[in-house]
Design a protein around this nucleic acid. Structure first.
Lengths: 193, 193
DNA sequence: CAGTGTCAATACGGTAGCGTATGGTCGCCT
DNA sequence: AGGCGACCATACGCTACCGTATTGACACTG
C-alpha cells in the first residue's frame, strides 16, 4: 500500500488531485481514474473535485500534462549531455532500465491508448523518442533509412518489454537475469564499432 | 464497417456471441464487450444472451479460449515444419508481419491485461512463444542464456511494434517502409552465420 | 468585523451497464 | 395436434459513476 491517504493537510489543491490521479493510473490504470473513488481516497467528496475541475477528462488531461513535463522531459535531458553517441545510447538503455515509476505510468498509458486524452500525448512522446534514437544512430554513421529502422526497433523493444514485465509480470525475473537482458539488448542494438 | 450485422439467420448460438465478442475486442477493445450493446449489434436483446451465458465474464473467457485455439495455435504449427532453424526464424518474422486480424486482437488484449480473464491467457501465450523462439535460437548455436535474452528481445520487439502501429497508428507507414523495417529486424535479430 | 473567495458537504437527477424473473414464440418430434 | 425445449422479449431492481445546484465553513484582507 502507498501514498495518497490524506496527510491531514485538509485543504486540497488542483495539483493534489492530479498527483492522486497519476497514482491511480500507475496502480489501477486510466479507467480507474473516477471522481468519486478518488474523492474517497482523498478523504473528501466530489463536491470538492468539481470546484477544481470542470470534468473528469479535464483532470486526466491535467495529470497527463504534468507527467509529460515532469517525469518525461527530464529523461532525455540528462542523457543528452553525453558527447560520444555510442556511450549516449548505452547510457540511455541502462538508465531506462531503472527508474520505475515513470515507466509504470507509461505502461498504464499504453493500455489506454483508445482514450482521447491519452493518445495524442503518447503519439507526441513516441515520435519524439524515436526521432531522438534515430539521430543518435545517425551519429554513429548509420544510413538514414537504417537509423530509422533501428530506432523503431529499439523503441518497440522498450515498449514491448514494459508490457511483458509490468503487466504480465512474466517471469518474475531475478535481478541478475534482468541485468543480463539489458546488456544483451545493448550489445545487440548498438552496432559494434 | 464490417461483420456481425445479423444475417437474418435469426436464431443465434453461443459461438455467434463469441465471434461477435472477438469482433468488438478487435475494434473497440475488451472493455467494450458489454452485453447490452452486443445484443443490440446482433439485433436481439440481452434476454437472449443470458440464455447462452451465465455472465459477461463467461462470454469473455469463451471468446478468448476460441481465439487462443483457432487463431493462435495455427501460427506456430505452420512455421514449425521448416527444418532449417535460420530459415524458420526468418519466416516466422515475415509471416508475423502479415495476417492482421489475430494481431489486432492480440494488441487489444495487451491493453486489457488488468482483466482477470485476459491475463492468464496472455501469460501462457507469451511464455509459449518466447520459449519457442529461445529453442530456435539455441538451434542456431547460441548459448542458453543468450538464446533466452534474444528470444525475449525479439518477442518484446513484436509486442512493442504492435502497440506503436495499431494503437498509436504511429507513422502511417507506407508499405515499402514497412517491408524495410521487417527485413531490418530480421537482419538485426537473426545472427548471421 | 464584514466581505470575498476558496474549498467542501449534501442532495439530487441522469445514464449505462449487470443480472433476474417471467412469460412468449417457434420448430420439431411423436 | 399436443408438447417440449431452444431461443428471445419485456420488465424490473441494483450499482457505479457523472455532473449540477445549493448551501456551509473557514481564512484572509481591508
Amino acid at each position: 500500500m502507498s501514498a495518497t491517504v490524506k496527510t491531514e493537510r485538509s485543504r486540497l489543491s488542483a495539483s493534489d488531485w492530479e498527483r492522486a490521479a497519476l497514482d491511480v493510473i500507475a496502480n489501477q490504470g486510466v479507467a480507474a481514474v473516477a471522481v468519486e473513488p478518488l474523492a474517497r481516497k482523498l478523504g473528501v467528496t466530489k463536491g470538492s473535485f468539481y470546484w477544481h475541475f470542470g470534468t473528469r477528462d479535464a483532470l486526466l488531461e491535467a495529470a497527463l500534462r504534468r507527467w509529460e513535463h515532469a517525469d518525461t522531459e527530464a529523461l532525455l535531458a540528462q542523457v543528452d549531455r553525453i558527447a560520444d553517441p555510442r556511450e549516449r545510447l548505452l547510457q540511455l538503455f541502462r538508465r531506462t532500465s531503472m527508474e520505475l515509476r515513470t515507466h509504470v505510468i507509461y505502461a498504464a498509458l499504453l493500455r489506454a491508448l483508445d482514450h482521447d486524452a491519452v493518445k495524442p500525448v503518447m503519439q507526441r512522446l513516441s515520435q519524439r523518442r524515436i526521432n531522438y534514437l534515430a539521430v543518435a544512430y545517425r551519429a554513429l554513421g548509420m544510413g538514414r533509412r537504417e537509423s530509422m529502422d533501428r530506432a523503431r526497433l529499439a523503441y518497440a523493444a522498450y515498449v514491448g518489454f514494459l508490457q511483458l514485465m509490468l503487466q504480465l509480470d512474466l517471469p518474475r525475473m531475478p535481478q541478475e537475469e534482468y541485468d543480463s537482458y539489458v546488456e544483451h539488448v545493448a550489445a545487440t542494438l548498438i552496432p559494434s564499432r
